[in-house]
């Protein structure tokens, strides 16, 4: 957490982007794209999540160690999902 210019303007821009993306994801949900709906919704959610993590949570300024700690759980999340699916999908 070095002292860096965590500018107010940046935060407001990020916030604007988050609100925009929320509007977009609601709008897209009214269009019927089949499976693509899921994909688009998750893509937008992940974009928003990345914005929050990188800017609001200052991940941008953190060292590799903190990045490791932040990303490791995602790997294990995928693991539990895939492992369980390997059973339920093929039963």
């Amino acid at each position: 957490m070095k002292e860096h210019d965590s500018g107010t303007r940046t935060y407001i821009v990020v916030w604007g982007a988050l609100v925009m993306l929320t509007v977009v994801t609601v709008a897209v949900s009214y269009v019927h794209l089949g499976m693509m709906n899921v994909f688009v919704a998750l893509l937008i959610a992940s974009a928003k999540a990345s914005l929050v993590a990188l800017f609001f949570m200052h991940l941008r300024y953190e060292n590799r160690l903190v990045w490791g700690f932040a990303l490791a759980p995602l790997f294990f999340l995928v693991l539990i999902v895939v492992g369980t699916l390997s059973d339920t999908l093929f039963r």
Binding site: G83, S86, D87, T88, L89, F90, R91
Partner: peptide, 8 residues
């Protein structure tokens, strides 16, 4: 032995 899928 729980009835888990063969793949798993």
């Amino acid at each position: 032995v729980t009835g888990m899928s063969g793949t798993a």
